[in-house]
Simulated assay, not measured.
Amino acid sequence: MRLEKKATVVSTSVAGALVLMKMTVGILSGSIAVLASAIDSLLDLTVSLFNYFALNTAEKNADEQFNFGRNKIEPLAAVIEGTVISLSAIFILYEALVKIFHPREVAFMQSSIWVMLVSIFITFFLVMFLNYVAKKTKNMVIKADALHYKTDLFSNSAVLIALALISMTGEQLIDPVIGIGIAIFMIYSSIPIIKEGVLMLLDAALSQEDIENIENILTNQADITDYHFLQTRESGSHIFISVHAVFNVSISLYDAHTITDKIELKIKNIFEDKIVHTIIHMDPYDDSEINEIKNEY
């Protein structure tokens, strides 16, 4: 089993245990903050299950129906995860506002505090593990999952602080106020996840730094006189690059092909943890202006 899939199995198991603990105490205590954290963990469980399905589907080989594979299910999973976080935040915000106008006392205070302490302890080690996997594999789904559980870590800490303050001061308004803060933080954290996933689904180009690295390889390749129409996109763990390289008209096809193989290898070395698909068109002269005129019609 791939490391990424193992990570989703671990996160699913942890989320399931946290849901059981938080939901029980949240319902019994009536704490909006604990209940909000329980709902968030329930959504974590759903998202982690979906992430496992997404990774399992994305690694399937290309076939007659999906000629380029199913890699885009990874950014789709990231967009769904970000959307789920946002929707859960809106629900938490609603519950917090209801409690402000219809206050009720938090019960089972000690149990709530202990549940949140255990939750923070478990989530901390899960975040460390997911960050390790995300850095090692550079997988977008795991990166989103790590960020998701990182927001949980912060929100759980906020819930614990709220319960401690209520226990010391007796002020019940602290609970919904902290709940509102958690909701706003969750929405703020979900925006980058959704944005990155949408850009990948829309075939956005690679970062400027990556493009400059590719251009440096092409510019410093002595055997080509020029290049044009450099196009890039990313799809999950796959990177697609297309470019027209201009050769001397007298070069043999064999030599030109050998040179393009060298260029492809250099480009692949830039993205060691990605699967790179490079298409280099071998032009005997600069046909960029001619092709631009054709594209206009």
Rank of each mutant, 00 (worst) to 15 (best):
T12F: 13
V14D: 07
V14R: 10
A17F: 15
L20H: 03
L20Q: 07
M21D: 12
T24G: 08
T24M: 11
V25N: 09
G30C: 03
G30N: 14
S31W: 09
I32C: 10
A33W: 02
A33L: 05
V34Y: 05
V34L: 06
L35K: 13
L35W: 04
L35H: 07
A36V: 04
A36Q: 08
A36P: 01
S37K: 07
A38Y: 09
I39L: 14
D40I: 10
S41Q: 03
L42H: 02
L42N: 08
L43N: 13
D44E: 12
L45N: 06
V47L: 00
S48D: 06
S48K: 09
S48V: 03
L49R: 06
F50Y: 11
F50D: 03
F50P: 00
Y52E: 01
F53D: 05
A54Y: 01
A54I: 06
A54R: 07
A54L: 03
L55F: 04
N56I: 00
E59K: 13
E59I: 08
K60P: 07
K60S: 07
K60T: 11
N61K: 14
A62M: 02
A62S: 15
E64P: 03
E64G: 06
F68V: 02
F68G: 13
F68R: 15
F68M: 14
K72E: 09
K72A: 07
K72Q: 13
K72R: 15
A77H: 06
A78W: 02
V79Q: 10
I80E: 09
T83R: 04
V84Q: 03
S86C: 10
S86A: 15
A89P: 01
A89L: 00
F91S: 13
L97D: 03
L97H: 08
L97F: 12
V98R: 14
K99R: 15
K99A: 01
K99E: 09
F101I: 13
F101S: 12
H102K: 14
R104S: 13
E105H: 10
V106L: 02
S111D: 14
S111E: 15
S111K: 10
S112N: 06
S119C: 11
S119Y: 12
I120G: 02
F121R: 11
I122N: 06
I122D: 04
F124P: 01
L126G: 12
M128F: 14
L130Q: 15
L130V: 09
Y132T: 10
Y132H: 15
Y132P: 04
A134Q: 10
K136M: 07
K136A: 09
T137E: 13
T137P: 04
T137W: 08
K143F: 00
K143H: 08
A144C: 08
D145A: 08
D145T: 15
L147Q: 11
H148F: 02
H148M: 07
H148C: 02
K150L: 12
T151S: 15
D152C: 06
D152E: 11
F154S: 00
F154K: 07
S155K: 08
S155P: 00
N156Q: 14
S157Y: 01
A158E: 05
A158I: 10
A158V: 10
